[in-house]
Each structure stands twice: as structure tokens, then as C-alpha cells.
Design a protein around this nucleic acid. Structure first.
Length: 482
RNA sequence: CGGGGUGUAGCGCAGUCUGGUAGCGCACGUGCUUUGGGAGCAUGGGGCCGGAGGUUCGAAUCCUCUCACCCCGACCA
């Protein structure tokens, strides 16, 4: 933010309290994460924004390798007949698929859909690949783009085209598939916490909210600073459903022909939207150090003075060799103050200032993005202190997000409390629920909230269903959602 | 698809009510001085006012029709 009365400030960001939605739009544009394209609902991810995605990919892919998954690639186009094989699935996605009707000037015999997800094309291949129990499990992931022709769109949160990873596995039986489903949900949860510094709620989706064609869907839900929920990842146990449709059978040890049990799980560029809405503040982005494209920016002060630039370059090399993603901002065209503000807008975790005064004292001046606290760090052992600083930033960002989330989770044992939690306090509400669809619809209509997830650890809050008076079955989180 | 808004320089806007041939801030070019929280002075370049039609001597401004985008809802990672 600019100082009052100071001429020449560049960016103004709408206050979060004033208009969270506008704040979000301002931040992503002004920090150069994305731009709007000419095609409605498609975003241009600029290099700085893509850098976050690259780091997410790297971190997550490492985890997939550790759990034995391999990457592969399947086609962008899916023949209509293939998609249409699974009726529940096609009904779930039909309203939002993009069709290819022509190849060059010729009309195609059969229309193609641009994949909204790849279950069908992958299953059709699995049917060929899997013959025996010896071929199982199949553990494959793909990084790709998918297209869903959404009616209304928002950068990162809901775009016509988005980047994601989708894991597709095939297993011997239901139990093994279930284990895989929960294992990958666990991987996502750990990733969100340890990489994105976002604490999530995990649990099961209601029948209404579950994936088209899945036996059961599990989710991780994060709370944004305006109290709305963002689904940041899902993991589905598909059971034998797709196997029966696509005829994926194997010969078991006992000589019987059996259907495989499958899972699929995915996370997308939506997570970047989550990072922005969980951590950002009045100055702009605040990136968790593990995904920040630039972890440290070095800003030389009074660059023209003897030795300043040399020392800055020295520090740059030292940190780079120590493995940090570091940038030396030696542009002569911008003033130091301008660079400070830009760093904050773009959410760089650590800013180092090096000026004549610091050099004389054998130190650099460090400012951390999360608290904006400044401290002098001795040049001696700098890489180590920066490492500690960065680790500390991650921890304190996570703690802050955790506090923010917990403060806005309310418990309701009747509908008055429920409405208050959703409408007035604008948060998540924990309540007992009868698991009836009708009840879910009424809640949506009256409060705007949807069921987010049913947690694994069940506790008994009240015997009365929150709304409709039928016997309560499950503890459930409700919230408005993005 | 409903409800609300906005289209004027690269970005953000004023001007529209009450028609008179387009202005401000930032950004950009050049020169000098600056550089520890968005620098200063001087000087310069850039717009057929979203599009089409109409009214008028004259339209950014009034009328009609269109197109695009944004926000809030219904649908979704």
C-alpha cells in the first residue's frame, strides 16, 4: 500500500474487509500471477504464477514417487461413444464438456470431447493392460490440462481450462482400493499442511456432492479468510463401477474372473487460489516458502556506492549455492522503496537489504513477509540463518491459518445456531445431519451452505438432526463454498 | 440462465444529467539531480471515446439496436 500523500505509487489493492472478492482479483492481476485471455473463462498463467505451479508439481510428484506411482499421459480427445459408456458419469459431465466436431474442414463421423477428466479413456486402456492378478495394482498419475465449460468462472478457482494431476489406480479388491483412496487423501492433507501451510478438514462427501460414478468421495476442505470453503483435492473410491462398464477383469489366484476395484484422485491449480485466499493480506500475496518462485530477494541499497553491488552479488551466489530460489534485484530503474513494495505485493517470503551501513557492520537486513518484522543477520553463516528464517515463516504461516480456521468453526445443535454460524459469523458449522438429500437442499436454500465433509472422527453432538428432525446420522461440516 | 454494473491512452478514472470537436493520475520517451519504504524538476509521445444506425449545423454526451467484460445468484476441482 502506498503512503498517504506520496506521489508515484503504482498499485492499489482493495481492502480485504471491504470486498474480499475484489481484493482477490486485484491481487492476482497486480502480482502478475495471471492475466485474462480473450477466451472467456480461460486464464493466462504468467511466469510468476506458473512458477508456483512448478513447485507444487515438484513437491507433489516426489510424494507420488514415494508411494509407488508412475506418471503417464493419455489423450486430450475422448470419443463421444467412450464417454457415453458410463451413464452416470456422462450425465455428471455432459453440461460442461467442450465438443470437437470438425477436423480441418471435414465434419467428424463421431464427435470428440475435450477431456473434462480422464476416467473413461484411462479405463479403456486398463481393460487392455490388465489380464491377471499379477498385473495389479496399476498405479498411474497424469499431469495434464482438462476443460470444463463453466457458466461462471474465476481465475484459479473455476476456469474453463485448468491444470491438474489425476491419479488412476486399479486394485485386487474393494479393501485395497479403499486403502489407496484414503492413503492418497492423506498425502494431500500432508502436502497442504507441510508445503502450502494450509490446514485442511478431511472427510467424506455426501451422496449429493460425490463424484459422478464414484462409490464414495473423500475431500480436503480449506477455509478462506472470508469463511468460505474451498475444496482443494478429492480422492474417490470408484469400486467396480467403471470396471464393469469398461470390462476391466483379471484372472485371480483362485482361477476366477474378477473385476478390478479402482480409485481416482486429483488436485489442481485451484490450490493456488487457496494459497492466495488463505495467506494473502492488505499488501498482497503471501507465498508459503516451499512453493514461492522466489524465496529470497536481495535488494542492494545505494547501489552506486563502492562495494555494495559486489557484496550483494556475493550474498546472491552464496544463497543460490545453498539451494535457495533467490533473486538479486539490481535494476537501476526502480528505487529501493519501490522494490520493497513490489516484493510484498508478490509475496516473496524473505527480503534482504544490503547497504553501505550493513556492509560496515558485517550484516544484512532481513524482512520477513509474514510478520513484516525486520532483523539484522550477520553475514557470517547467512545461509543457515536464512534457512531457519524460512522454516520459521512456514510454521508461523501455518499456525496463523490454523487459528483463523478454528476461530470460525462453530458448533450447532439447532437450526438457529446453524444459521447464525453460516450467515452472521460466516464460517463453517459443525452439526449432526440425517444424511437426507432433502435436508441438504433445504439448508442450501435457506442459508446458502452446502455439506462440505463428514469427518472421520465422529463425535455425538446432539440426537437431533440440525434441520429436518429426522434421526441424525453423521457429524458434518457445512459452509458456503467457492 | 435470472439480478446488478462497466466499456474514454498501456493501467486506473473524470467528462455524459445541461451536445461545441477530449482531460487527469500512474505508466512510457529524453535530460539532469537522486537511491535505507512506492524520488524530484524540466520536456515529449500516445485516444477516430466498445460497435452499428439515427437525431443535429455539430455527438464521448441524446435515441435505437448490438457486442464485450465484471460482480451477485443457480451448476462445478
Amino acid at each position: 500500500m502506498a503512503k498517504e500523500g506520496k506521489q508515484g505509487y503504482v498499485e492499489h489493492i482493495t481492502s480485504r474487509e471491504e470486498d474480499f472478492s475484489q481484493w482477490y482479483t486485484d491481487v492476482i492481476k497486480k502480482s502478475e500471477l495471471v492475466d485474462y485471455s480473450d477466451v472467456k473463462g480461460c486464464m493466462v498463467i504468467r511466469p510468476y504464477g506458473y512458477g508456483i505451479w512448478e513447485n507444487i508439481q515438484k513437491e507433489m510428484d516426489g510424494r507420488f514417487k514415494a508411494t509407488g506411482h508412475k506418471n503417464a499421459y493419455f489423450p486430450l480427445f475422448i470419443p463421444e461413444s467412450l464417454l457415453a459408456k458410463e451413464i452416470e458419469h456422462v450425465e455428471g459431465f455432459a453440461p460442461e464438456v467442450a465438443w470437437v466436431t470438425h477436423g480441418g474442414n471435414e465434419k467428424l463421423q463421431e464427435r470428440l470431447v475435450v477431456r473434462p477428466t480422464s476416467e473413461t479413456i484411462i479405463c479403456s486402456m486398463y481393460a487392455k493392460w490388465i489380464q491377471s492378478y499379477r498385473d495389479l495394482p496399476v498405479l498411474i498419475n497424469q499431469w495434464c490440462n482438462v476443460v470444463r465449460w463453466e457458466k461462471s468462472t474465476r481465475p484459479f478457482l473455476r476456469t474453463s481450462e485448468f491444470l491438474w494431476q489425476e491419479g488412476h489406480t486399479a486394485h485386487l479388491d474393494y479393501e485395497e482400493a479403499q486403502e489407496e483412496t484414503l492413503k492418497m487423501l492423506g498425502v494431500y492433507e500432508e502436502f497442504a499442511r507441510n508445503v502450502l501451510a494450509i490446514p485442511v478438514l478431511v472427510g467424506k462427501k455426501s451422496e449429493k456432492e460425490k463424484f459422478a460414478g464414484a462409490q464414495s468421495t473423500y475431500t480436503m476442505e480449506a477455509m478462506m479468510q472470508d469463511g468460505k470453503a474451498l475444496q482443494m483435492g478429492t480422492s474417490h473410491n470408484l469400486g467396480e463401477h467403471f470396471a464393469k462398464v469398461f470390462d476391466i477383469q483379471y484372472l485371480a489366484k483362485d482361477g476366477k474372473l474378477k473385476y478390478v476395484n479402482q480409485t481416482s484422485w486429483g488436485t489442481s491449480t485451484r490450490m493456488i487460489g487457496g494459497i492466495i485466499m488463505v495467506h494473502g493480506d492488505e499488501r498482497g500475496l503471501m507465498l508459503p516458502p516451499k512453493v514461492a518462485p522466489i524465496q529470497v530477494t536481495i535488494i542492494p541499497i545505494a547501489m552506486h556506492k563502492e562495494g555494495v553491488l559486489d557484496k550483494a552479488r556475493e550474498v546472491f551466489s552464496e544463497l543460490q549455492n545453498a539451494g535457495f530460489r533467490v533473486e538479486l534485484d539490481d535494476r537501476e530503474t526502480q528505487s529501493a522503496g519501490w522494490k520493497f513494495n513490489e516484493c510484498e505485493l508478490k509475496g516473496v517470503p524473505v527480503r534482504l537489504e544490503i547497504g553501505p551501513r550493513d556492509i560496515a557492520n558485517g550484516q544484512v537486513f532481513a524482512c520477513r513477509r509474514d510478520t513484516l518484522e525486520k532483523q539484522a543477520l550477520p553475514l557470517q553463516g547467512l545461509a543457515e540463518s536464512v534457512k531457519e528464517l524460512i522454516e520459521d515463516i512456514h510454521v508461523s504461516m501455518l499456525e496463523k491459518a490454523e487459528k483463523m480456521r478454528d476461530e470460525r468453526i462453530f458448533t450447532a445443535t439447532n437450526f438457529e445456531e446453524f444459521t447464525k454460524g453460516i450467515v452472521e459469523d460466516k464460517g463453517f458449522v459443525k452439526a449432526m445431519w440425517c444424511e437426507e438429500r432433502e435436508c441438504e437442499d433445504q439448508i442450501k436454500e435457506k442459508t446458502g451452505a452446502t455439506t462440505r465433509c463428514m469427518p472421520f472422527e465422529q463425535e455425538q453432538l446432539s440426537d437431533v438432526c440440525v434441520h429436518c428432525g429426522r434421526p441424525a446420522k453423521s457429524l458434518t461440516y457445512f459452509a458456503r463454498a467457492y
